[in-house]
Design a binder for these strands. Sequence first.
DNA 1: CAAAACGAATTTTTT
DNA 2: ATTCGTTTTG
Length: 790
Amino acid sequence: MSPDLFSPPVSPLVSGLNPEQAAAVTLPAEHALILAGAGSGKTRVLTTRIAWLLQTGQVGPGGVMAVTFTNKAAREMTTRLSAMLPVNVRGMWIGTFHGLCNRLLRAHHQAAALPATFQILDTQDQLSAIKRLCKQHNVDDERFPPKELQWFIAGAKEEGLRARDVPARDEETRRKVELYALYDEQCQREGVVDFGELMLRSYELLRDNDALREHYQRRFRHVLIDEFQDTNKLQYAWLKLFAPPPLEGLGTGTGAVFAVGDDDQSIYAFRGARVGNMADFVREYRVRHQIKLEQNYRSVSNILDAANHLIGHNQRRLGKNLRTDAGAGEPVRVNEAVSDFAEAQWLVEEIKALVREEVPRSEIAVLYRSNAQSRVVETALFNAGLPYRVYGGLRFFERAEIKHALAYLRLIENPRDDTSFLRVVNFPPRGIGARSIEQLQDVARAAGCSLHDAVSAVTGRAGVAIGGFVAKMDVMRERSEGASLKDIIELVLEHSGLIEHYRQEREGQERVENLEELVNAAESFVMQEGFGRDAAALTQSPASQGLDPNAPPLAVPIADPAPDADTGETLSPLAAFLSHAALESGDNQAHAGQDAVQLMTVHAAKGLEFDCVFITGLEEGLFPHENAMSDRDGLEEERRLMYVAITRARKRLYLSHSQTRLLHGQTRYNLKSRFFDELPEHCLKWLTPPQAQGWGGMGSAGWGGHRAMGARSEPQPAWSPGWKAASAPAPEPDRGTAIKAGMAVFHNKFGEGKVLAVEGAGDDARAQVSFNRHGTKWLALSVAKLTPIE
DNA sequence: CAAAACGAATTTTTT
DNA sequence: ATTCGTTTTG
């Protein structure tokens, strides 16, 4: 089993790798599972594997397929690969699941029963399509909230289930299934596909089309998958069609699957990911090569010890322990704060100290379990004048003004796209009201055609107004013919009236800038994708085919004339750009580039690393989250999440929790997270919070003082959020007997307890008190006698 | 048609 | 609290 037997004597590619990495890279062309721990050089192994396969002549670029989850990961792989080898990366299928599905469906749109110009619905579009459908079928949105239906449909597709395949035991499910079927019909009619459909449709395409499937099975000698622990049922089934396991009836089964993953970093079960796919893969593919990458190149051993010890508390693991050659490093610092404000203030002081030690701000990350927690931290950082950047939130292509512009562009491509039609038929406002639109929808429904095609049949004023819109669209479509992408977009921005509309809007300046940015985005897209010189791009494909001894020209007659067509090369620039916009929603971090402290959820931090990491809000109910604490699987996923958080840190790790926290407008009292008990004492250093003096007193006073000094007079930096009045507890005039959250109180009957929250005022005021012996109760302050105690 | 007012929801998220 | 979406109101 020594991989050295198979590898060529000296390959410079392999020389810098540790033995396990080198072994993984040089495995023979057989199925393999690489268990890659955090910081173990996973991406490096993946890319070097591809480079090694190509360099040793085992496969040509056309015979490689590499699948990732995010565009970022796909880009990184492509970039690193082309840095390693002078290879034509375009000949390879490297991309996200959805990107590759799109490519496949574009190339075989006919076989997949899709129009050549099919458009992709993102989550927003999907929801509005569902809402529209529900309205049309008079669905009671109390009983069937559109969001729930969306979840139901997306969930079913991720399981690989069509409406007819979903088991419906009760009446409610039957109705949902019915709506699922109607939704799919609507999408088909309109020529649009949602994200789940991209996967499911291409899965079915290959499953049902023997010639096509066998063609791709012959072509892809090596199929590599990143983050395998995050695959859902359908994605695994999809992979199996490209490279079937032995004895699985569906093909010749000769492509080798190289799966890389880490069960300890599986944090997406809530959206359908199945860690179990790893074990299934080993069994079904009779995997003989399993390699663990346990050498960690990221963190000092105190941090790694903490991570290993914590994750050791999970029952269901494949088993892995990270090790490092780095020294112990600093201990993991633990802080307990009185309030979330005090926690944020502590954070600021520590960050300032780090910055004084010349740690770049961008090497400092503040992680939290849920987005709601970012606010306090933001306010504190803002008041301290520390630049920061929040990940998450609206991405470029999700902004309303951009979606509007894209809707016009999509209508140029595909007039049947009713979702886009409805989005912009009256935007900017052009006097087409709800009644006119309903009239149009009635006609379209009766005729079974798209809104666009129904226009001519609408009479009266409504007909004229909407007719004007359609005529406008037709003009734009005509003028776009043969124009460059840039010209098309500028034409649309002008002709639609979008730019004009936002120019006149008071707060529209930023939106106008974004629209102008859209033109830039399109231009750089054209550059990157090598459009503009279509001829040059086209010559690449045959050339790369020629280099590939394992991908012979098609011998089997296939309905589609160009089964290998790379969509990027045959699609019009506009069509390609629209796909790009739907599949890659752009940066979700505000204002990149500046040296700023990084704020994000733990989920968003996966795959990133920083010198210094703060994990905040480590409290029972928050982290682990209350919704996940009930069952073991949920709790284990929370623990993996904590594991991911810890392993983001290279040199310094800070953990903090707070006794009280303002959440949903009320103060909650939280116990410290059980995860603290699962960390080894020897690598921790408990800090005594300087401001911890009693309940809330100094915490808010110190905070208030800071605020009073006021960053308000300072110029508002570009990176800052809009200023919101700090929600710090106002130093209320002391009424002596006032019961406040966090207080320790005494009750004649229930004894001692702590006030969790206070609601209402005057005679209606109630307090939630957690009694030491009698549980948690709500008490009306006008009735119950609560005495504050020391 | 737009602004104001009300009400419900509020773990994590990529494509 | 606060945000977001729907309904009501001018």
